[in-house]
Amino acid sequence: MTREIVIKTEHLTKRFGDFIATNAISFEVYAGEIFGFLGANGAGKTTAMKMLCGLLTPSSGSASIAGFDIYKQSEKIKKSIGYMSQKFSLYEDLTTLENISFFGGIYGLSDAQIKSKSEKLIGQLGLQNEMKKLVGELPLGWKQKLAFSVAVLHDPKIVFLDEPTGGVDPVTRRQFWDLIYDAAARGITVFVTTHYMDEAEYCDRISMMVDGVMKELDTPQNLKSKYNTTSMDDVFFELARGAKRKAD
């Protein structure tokens, strides 16, 4: 069975002076999969993700996202991806509805689409009473769920999530992953970085970055049997132990 490839990188490298943040990583991500992108702090995950999203220009190597070249077609890529950064990035001084309509609007949705999608999204997240509240007043967990829903509002081919559940309680994290499964079921490819190993288990495949190099890429099941253990924690320790870079 051949699966559609939505992300393909070859020797993708980013240097900052002498420092090689991301060293010649090559991998493929298939359409509709949940791809976990793991690594210790400072392993080069965020740098790699920013290159894929078109926020950073790679030093060398190539990559294509949704069939578009990251050097030449970055504006086309931007129409086909969603992105949720480590920092919370909705406008806190706008209300829930205003944020939804703003991001819907700049992704080119029509007024009718914005209206129907807002209603659906509000219903799904149970935010009926918070629609007209400023986003800054919402609890962190709700903000994160809202930010994710806004990132997939325009039905992108791929959504990039950079540590989306940092600082969120376990119940909300579980709900957040329900949203991720929902999106994947709608055919959206999910590219997610995380430090939680239980979340790694939810992924279809995971990759491990160590010192800017991609050390492993397989299903959680295969990785666990390869390292002869029953938990992803052990796999992570085994791999991260070899890291020379200090976490920042």
Binding site: L55, E75, K78, K79, S85, K87, S89, L90, F103, I106
Partner: peptide
């Protein structure tokens, strides 16, 4: 500072 510009920069906004 608050990071929203990064969010705008990944959108098709020219």
């Amino acid at each position: 500072e608050i990071g929203t510009i990064e969010q705008i920069n990944v959108t098709p906004v020219k």
